[in-house]
């Protein structure tokens, strides 16, 4: 197995996630796309961990941390979306343009 094949899959997933983050209208799906990007990063971390034969296994440990943080992020993200929906009756990111210049 080559290293690059894992990296290419990860990069492709990352690009899909990026595309989704930009194009999706529904806030929940934006969040889902972010999860896709994080998953791609995890593949990279684990692949490099195995490739470098790291005695500390830092790649895998960091993947665990990423997963924990992603879980926290989803929890908060859903809570925020819920709050927005409650106030504006919509979870559409197009309606969230308070920062418009």
């Amino acid at each position: 197995m080559t290293l690059i094949q894992f990296l290419i899959v990860a990069t492709a997933l990352f690009s899909f996630g990026l595309y989704g983050v930009i194009t999706r209208k529904n806030a929940v799906l934006v969040l889902a796309s972010v999860e896709l990007m994080l998953a791609a990063v995890n593949i990279n971390l684990v692949a490099f961990d195995v490739y470098l034969d790291d005695p500390l296994n830092s790649g895998q440990i960091f993947t665990l941390f990423t997963i924990a943080l992603a879980a926290a992020e989803v929890g908060i993200g859903i809570a925020i979306i819920l709050m927005i929906y409650r106030n504006r009756q919509s979870a559409d990111v197009d309606d969230l343009d308070l920062m418009k210049g």
């Binding site: 983050v21 930009i22 934006v30 418009k100 210049g101």
Partner: peptide, 18 residues
């Protein structure tokens, strides 16, 4: 002119960032 780039849409900001 410039204020058009400040649409208030976070997704566009993310895209610009990338």
């Amino acid at each position: 002119v410039l204020r058009r780039s400040f649409t208030g849409r976070v997704q566009q900001y993310a895209a610009f960032g990338f």
